[in-house]
């Protein structure tokens, strides 16, 4: 009976295996890097991670709803370019607030375009968002043909420092988890999971499948906007036209590492957050374990593959023991 309960716990909380994995890699990290839990180190590590965490959260909502968003990285590039063309070191708080609202609106609008094409024109999410990624990339280049940009220094200093001796990113993660736990209690969340697991069945039972699909991309656009805001806070507003492009793949890998299957209808944002942390901690371990320079990339890739295959392997072993 007891093992059955444990199985149920794992099934309900898909991120548990990932969480255990994170604890293990963090333990290894601590062995090779004793200062990893010091406030300053923790704060700096999490600060550079927050943009990807936000992006992965948006990605996981799309994936849960049965889609995939390959445009998030270039969307970050475009929105960052947009932000730094509006905000300068001399901007007033009102102007900055307006720019932030406009960037968020632009992100949601870009997501809306993705969502409408996917839900109403019935194009494959992968093809659609791959295509729009070039549009966003093109706009980014138009807005910011050469690297540049700068925001008021006080803002980045605030973002880069711990608040009340707690890394700022902790507050952000707490807010994200709170947002998600509230969302989970709504009917919208039920629709979201139903749409992701089987669109046709959900449609038959009266779920507004198309609308739900569209909203997932709008969420993704909004989180891309938040990611670009934090990225610009972290760099002091210095951007370039391709600053976020590489983040797309990492956001998807993080979602999968967090136990959310790309087939949809399952998973959550906690997993995505854990997934991003695992990705980062693995790189730390490789550096501090003094892996030779020319092997770092390969070792990193092998560990990620192993981590991705881990849950599947565990299921396989459990099944073969069960029989």
């Amino acid at each position: 009976m007891k093992s059955l309960n444990l199985q149920r716990v794992f099934a309900r909380n898909t991120y548990l295996i990932s969480f255990i994995l994170l604890v293990i890699v963090l333990g290894i990290n601590y062995i090779v890097q004793n200062n990893v839990f010091e406030l300053r180190v923790l704060n700096n590590n999490l600060r550079t991670l927050l943009p990807l965490i936000l992006l992965a959260v948006g990605q996981s909502i799309v994936v849960i709803g049965g889609g995939l968003d390959l445009s998030v990285g270039t969307l970050v590039s475009m929105l960052s370019a947009l932000l730094v063309t509006w905000v300068t070191p001399d901007s007033t708080p009102d102007q900055i607030l307006l720019a932030v609202v406009l960037v968020c609106a632009a992100g949601m609008l870009a997501g809306l375009v993705n969502g409408l094409v996917v839900a109403y024109l019935r194009l494959q999410p992968m093809i659609t968002t791959y295509a729009t990624s070039f549009i966003f990339s093109g706009i980014a280049l138009l807005l910011l043909p050469r690297p540049g940009g700068s925001i008021p220094r006080d803002l980045s200093t605030f973002y880069r420092s711990p608040l009340l001796d707690i890394p700022l990113a902790f507050y952000a993660i707490a807010l994200l988890l709170l947002f998600w736990s509230v969302l989970r209690t709504t009917r919208y969340a039920q629709y979201l999971y139903a749409t992701g697991s089987s669109g046709a069945a959900a449609y038959a039972t009266g779920v507004p499948v198309r609308v739900v699909r569209v909203t997932t991309y709008v969420w993704s656009g909004l989180f891309a906007a938040l990611a670009s805001l934090t990225l610009m806070l972290s760099t002091g507003g210095a951007s370039q036209a391709n600053i976020g492009d590489d983040m797309t793949l990492d956001s998807i890998v993080a979602v999968v590492l967090g136990g959310t299957r790309l087939s949809g209808g399952q998973g959550g944002i906690a997993g995505a957050i854990i997934g991003v942390m695992i990705l980062r901690v693995i790189r730390n371990v490789i550096f501090f374990a003094a892996v030779p320079t020319w092997s770092q990339t390969l070792v990193n890739a092998l560990i990620i593959i192993a981590a991705l295959a881990g849950p599947g392997l565990i299921r396989l072993i459990r099944r073969s023991i069960g029989r």
Partner: peptide
């Protein structure tokens, strides 16, 4: 520290 990486990666 040598790897293909973006701005956030080089910050790390």
């Amino acid at each position: 520290e040598s790897a293909d990486t973006d701005v956030a990666g080089q910050q790390q």
